[in-house]
Simulated scan of single mutants.
Amino acid sequence: MPKRKFKLMFIDDDPDIRSIFDFAFDQEADMEVRLFASSLDALSAAAAAPPDIILLDVMMPEMDGPNAFKRLKAIPALARTPIVFITAKAQKHEIEKLEQLGAAGVIEKPFQAMELPSRIRALLKRTSGANLPAAGETKKSS
């Protein structure tokens, strides 16, 4: 029986950051990543197909991360979905403010791309109790 794929949604207006994120998860057979350049586009997509975890940039045009967070959490199907902020604003008081909103975590930019899958697995395990395999056990064969 095929293993369940964990669905990740990554929202960041920077195309280079999206490419790095996509590359980091390219070989993760148990994770399916959907990339969005806009919080507005992600809102309707998340409601239609709820992900297991959302990674959300803080500073974006149209709608910033904290406002998108509030709108995403207001969608009943996403109320319990962990949301992790991605930010270059890594001062202690800024991180605390994001955590006070209810963020499941904060990842600072720049991040180590190849460490992201294991960090996300740890967050998924902590927030949902999911029985996730260890990093390296899920690689697609080349």
Rank of each mutant, 00 (worst) to 15 (best):
Q91C: 14
R80V: 12
M60V: 09
E94G: 10
L124P: 02
A74Q: 14
K125G: 11
A103K: 08
M60D: 06
L78I: 02
Q91A: 15
I107P: 03
E62F: 07
M114R: 14
G65P: 10
F85H: 01
P61C: 07
L124T: 03
F111K: 14
L116F: 00
G65I: 11
R121M: 07
P133Y: 05
A79D: 14
A103Q: 09
K97P: 01
L132K: 08
K70H: 06
L123G: 01
M114T: 15
P82A: 05
A79K: 14
R119A: 11
R126H: 07
I75E: 11
G129N: 06
F69V: 12
A74T: 07
P82L: 10
V84F: 02
K125W: 02
R80S: 12
E94I: 10
P61Q: 06
L116P: 00
P110S: 10
S128G: 13
V84L: 14
A134E: 15
G102K: 15
Q112H: 09
D64P: 11
E94V: 13
G102I: 11
V84K: 01
L101P: 05
R71P: 05
V58E: 05
T81L: 05
L123Y: 00
V106G: 05
T127K: 03
M63T: 08
D64I: 12
P110L: 09
H93L: 13
Q91G: 15
L124H: 02
K109F: 11
L124F: 04
K97R: 10
A90M: 14
A77W: 00
P76W: 08
L123Q: 01
P133L: 15
K125N: 07
I107L: 13
P76E: 12
A130L: 11
F111C: 13
I86C: 10
E115R: 04
I120P: 02
L101N: 08
M63E: 05
F69D: 00
G65F: 07
K97W: 07
K70W: 04
T127L: 06
A90S: 12
A88C: 01
K92R: 15
L123E: 01
V106W: 03
R119V: 06
A134P: 03
L116R: 00
V58I: 08
E96Q: 15
I120Y: 00
G65Q: 06
P82W: 06
P110M: 14
I107C: 04
L132S: 08
R126N: 11
P110N: 09
L78H: 02
F111R: 14
G105E: 08
P61L: 04
A104G: 13
K109H: 08
F69S: 05
P110F: 12
L78Q: 00
P66L: 03
L123M: 03
M63R: 12
L101E: 13
L124R: 08
E94W: 08
R71V: 15
A88P: 00
I95P: 04
K73E: 07
T127I: 00
K70Y: 07
I83V: 12
A90Q: 14
K73F: 08
P133Q: 13
E115P: 00
E96Y: 04
M63K: 13
A88H: 01
A113K: 10
M63H: 05
S118Q: 07
A77D: 07
I75N: 06
M63F: 04
R119E: 03
Q112E: 05
F111M: 12
K125Y: 01
G102V: 13
K70Q: 15
I83T: 05
G102W: 12
L101M: 15
E96W: 04
R119P: 02
I107T: 09
N67P: 00
G102F: 12
